[in-house]
Structures are given as structure tokens and as C-alpha cells.
Amino acid sequence: MAEVRLPTLLRVHADGAASVTAAGSTVGELFASVTAAHPGLADQLIDENGALHKFVNVYVNDDDIRYLDKLETPVTDRDVISILPAVAGG
């Protein structure tokens, strides 16, 4: 089971947990597992086209999955997946 760390903004959708564990061999599979257990997270992570929502960044350890294989990025049980909101303005 890999660890998925949630930003404080999203913890309300996971009963307050700072991190959850999930099974899967890719980030997408992990997210499917996480959102099955915590349905409120689904709209926060995945957009209407099934892609990673543009307002969140996801890291496998230190690497942004947008520069890897996005939701197809492989993961192992030793990986820590971090979800952070994109922070921007003008």
C-alpha cells in the first residue's frame, strides 16, 4: 500500500486524515482506490475528461507526474504520493 498525502484543504473529504493508504500500480489506480473510499475527493482530483485536475499537482516522491506519465505513472508500495493545490495569481 502506498501513502497518499493530502493537502489540508482536501482533508475534510477524507475524515480529516492527513494521509491515506491505497493499493494500485499506477497513480490512477491509487486515486481510484482513494476516491472509492472517499468519494468527496473524486471531483477534486480528476476532471470531467478523466485527466488530472489542472488545479492540483501530484508528486511521486519528489517528481511531478505531469512530467512523468501523468495518471499512468507507476508506483510501488514504498512511494509517497503528495497532492498539493496549484497556487497562482496575478
Binding site: 489540508t8 499537482n57 508528486y59 519528489d62 503528495s82 498539493l84 497556487v87 497562482a88 495569481g89 496575478g90
Partner: peptide, 27 residues
């Protein structure tokens, strides 16, 4: 005209602040 906080800087700041029992409270 615009800014986006570099994601890896945010990741590092998030880890460091949580290690001391705090949170990111703003930008």
C-alpha cells in the same frame, strides 16, 4: 503579470512546515 508558486518549492515548504507541526497558511 502573473505568478505560480513552483510546485517543488511548495512541496519542500509543505514538508518542512508539517515537520514542525505547522501548516502552510498563506502565500
Amino acid at each position: 503579470r502573473t505568478y505560480t508558486v513552483d510546485g517543488r518549492d511548495y512541496l519542500r515548504a509543505s514538508r518542512d512546515s508539517e515537520a514542525r507541526g505547522d501548516e502552510i497558511i498563506g502565500v
